[in-house]
């Protein structure tokens, strides 16, 4: 009996989570004229692909998408490389200044992002990167959180494994590349997902930096479309749906990485 109540509560909340998403999907296939007629779901025979067509033929949606992929892809790869390499150094080597580096990084993590907007804008302005994708990518290279994530996870890579690699003929970078990174695959997957979601959804900074509409990323572009193509709700929902898809796909691709306990059983009897 009690169990039934629990299930009902869970299902109720699940519905609350899913209904808006379902409505998004339905609206993406809803003709603009039908929005006022069928606020919830139109009959199946009235569903249309027109929104998607106008998205790609009349609006620069594809451009936004490409821009977003470029910016997010470049940012994630740079962040991944810098953070994992830095995290590796902090996790697996002893060297003078290590404590200081970690202390400074931790301290800066406490500072809320908006504090940096003004000086960063000034900096990017002086670097001549206003209204460019580089202006988004370059300041996004540093991911202190990611570096600590990698450090934390790489702490548990056994020293003997690194030593074995050294003996087997790896130089220090090859140890990182051939052993530590492959062993850290789950955390690499998790990091990529988090970093991708972060850049993909980044709004405030692109809103400040980007000016020309052919450079817009999806969040900026879609938001702008509301003003320009007034009341084209269908296209907006279709665009939103498509914009969300890459994250969902990536999530399902990388979900395995969390689960795979790769290091399990590799060390000790």
């Amino acid at each position: 009996m009690r169990r039934l109540v629990v299930y009902m509560l869970l299902v109720l909340f699940a519905l609350l989570c899913l209904v808006p998403i379902a409505w998004l999907v339905a609206s993406a296939f809803k003709a603009n004229a039908d929005f006022h007629v069928y606020p919830v779901v139109p009959p199946v025979d009235r569903l249309t692909l027109a929104n998607f067509t106008s998205l790609f033929t009349q609006m620069p949606f594809l451009r936004f998408m490409m821009n977003s992929f470029f910016v997010a892809g470049a940012t994630v790869i740079l962040q991944l490389f810098f953070s994992s390499l830095g995290g590796f150094a902090l996790a697996k080597y002893d060297f003078a200044g290590k404590k200081a580096v970690m202390g400074v990084m931790l301290a800066t993590m406490m500072i809320p992002g908006p504090v940096l907007l003004a000086p960063m804008y000034e900096l990017i302005y002086h670097m001549g990167l206003i209204d460019s994708h580089l202006g988004l990518i370059v300041p996004g290279m540093v991911n202190v959180f990611g570096m600590f994530l990698f450090r934390q996870s790489m702490l548990s890579v056994p020293d003997e494994m690194l030593q074995a690699a050294r003996i087997d003929g790896c130089n220090e970078f090859q140890i990182f590349w051939h052993v530590v990174m492959p062993v850290s695959r789950p955390i690499v997957g998790a990091f990529c997902l988090i970093a991708f979601m972060g850049t993909w959804n980044s709004f405030l900074w692109p809103q400040i930096i980007l000016q020309s509409s052919d450079r817009f990323t999806l969040p900026i572009g879609l938001n702008q479309m509301i003003g320009v193509y007034e009341a084209d709700y269908g296209a907006m929902m279709a665009g939103t749906l498509l914009a969300v898809l890459p994250v969902v796909v990536l999530f399902f691709l990388l979900q395995k990485e969390f689960i795979a306990g790769l290091t399990k059983g590799a060390v000790k009897g």
Binding site: R166, I167, N171
Partner: peptide, 21 residues
């Protein structure tokens, strides 16, 4: 010399096998 330059092989107590290979 770095270990790689010594051409020495070693078996570790934990075996230190590469789990991903």
């Amino acid at each position: 010399l770095h270990p790689r330059a010594r051409n020495i092989a070693m078996v570790f107590q934990s075996y230190a096998l590469y789990p991903h290979k």
